[in-house]
Design a protein around this nucleic acid. Structure first.
Lengths: 226, 226
DNA sequence: ACGCCGTTGGCAGGTTGTTGCCGATTGCCG
DNA sequence: CGGCAATCGGCAACAACCTGCCAACGGCGT
């Protein structure tokens, strides 16, 4: 079978676990001892569901928040979902996490004290695989990539301000787009110029990290915005 | 409160019920006695879930299938979902239903013996409202509209044949579209000409009943095809 | 009032997507 | 082999979409 937690600690190897539950069992002690956690996620379901319910949250909350450096990078779409946005604010305010937003496609990643990297594998239904890496070279490489992404990302405050009023009309724009209404008609419906309407759509697509309208439709539906 | 079933029978009125469960309670006896049922639905969840599980299925199955004329109109997207397609075949083969496909936007409707019309209201979360109409003029109007839609719709066999090989490459096209890949690159990836690739997209959009790629993205996601 | 700043929306020019047309290719009969 | 039907894919015209530019408009602080 795959390596045990003990092997991970002593050797510099890679262990693959299947399922978040298993991941939590294997790594909760790492989180408990961590002073520097960096995390990249495309949404909140992936990491938070399993972890906050389990021992990790307790481990983190049991200590002084100032001791641990928490950095989190999300995709812009989390700001469109009210629930996600609220959760974001919570972990920022309560646990002192630093949160940034990046438009780049990033794989889901956790770095612990720059010594352990956890990388999420393919999103197979139900059973997702995670690679727990302690090999120094690999962790170093992942860390440098994460740091680069971190630097290029903007703080959530700046990003949030930038799309603040977008959120107001986003539902209407999404509704029109979802009904297949042409830009011309949609702009008239909203009492906007076509240019401004398209600006909205462009901002929306950027917020969704979509390169095409089809992709935007998929992402919007994923978030339940349509 | 709203009218009772008794009122529906004697007077020619409109009763509004909330929730499919309530609808079944009120109308199962109508289905039991029906010899001509016409049904329009955009997907299979809406009518089948509540009814097949309940008394209506029993009522229909308890009688000779030849006695009742079953006509059903669906949107094209049911053919893309394997589960829906299978269910479609079942009600056609087992219950002798005539099934047609229309690309038009149709409201969910049931007509019983051309005397009772059931129209689905807004898809409010969980509690959906249904109007049960027996007023002859209204039922007559709805019937004529349904008949028109029925005539203009194509048989499921013809439609199925038409998009048979589309289903083979649909997943790949959907994947490329969902990743925001440009037509040029997508066509190269599939080893197709750009014209042919776009033809695929057009067929796909028609199958999804989408007027824009955004809408197609939404629909595709709704069906879990991406 | 005046300048400053952000938003707006027209315009223009570019890219991408949509569709009809038609000849080339392929496979399948008679 | 010749014909037939279906598909493919280039071409072209058009519609839709995307974006930089800039003038116009409306607050807002001084």
């Amino acid at each position: 079978m795959t390596n045990t937690v003990g092997t991970i600690r002593t050797g510099g190897t890679v262990a693959v676990v299947r399922g978040e539950e298993e991941l939590v069992r294997r790594t909760s002690h790492l989180f408990a001892a961590a002073t520097d956690i960096a995390c990249a996620a495309i949404d909140l379901r992936t990491w938070s569901a399993a972890r906050t319910e389990s021992g990790i949250r307790a481990a983190l909350c049991g200590r002084d928040g100032a001791e641990v450096r928490l950095r989190k990078v999300y995709r812009p779409n989390v700001l469109l979902d009210p629930v996600s946005a609220a959760h974001l604010r919570e972990i920022r305010d309560v646990r002192g996490a630093q949160i940034r937003i990046t438009p780049d496609e990033i794989n889901e990643t956790i770095l612990i004290d720059r010594r352990v990297a956890i990388l999420a594998g393919d999103p197979r239904l139900g059973e997702r695989s995670f690679s727990i890496v302690t090999q120094p070279e690999v962790v170093q490489g992942v860390t440098s990539l994460f740091d680069a992404a971190w630097r290029s990302a903007t703080t959530v405050e700046a990003y949030d301000a930038r799309i603040a009023e977008l959120r107001d009309i986003a539902p209407q724009v999404l509704d029109l787009l979802g009904r297949g209404v042409k830009d011309e008609a949609a702009a008239r419906t909203l009492g906007l110029g076509v240019r401004t309407y398209r600006r909205r759509v462009a901002e929306l697509m950027e917020a969704l990290g979509a390169a095409s309208r089809f992709q935007a439709g998929v992402r919007a539906r994923e978030l339940g915005l349509v």
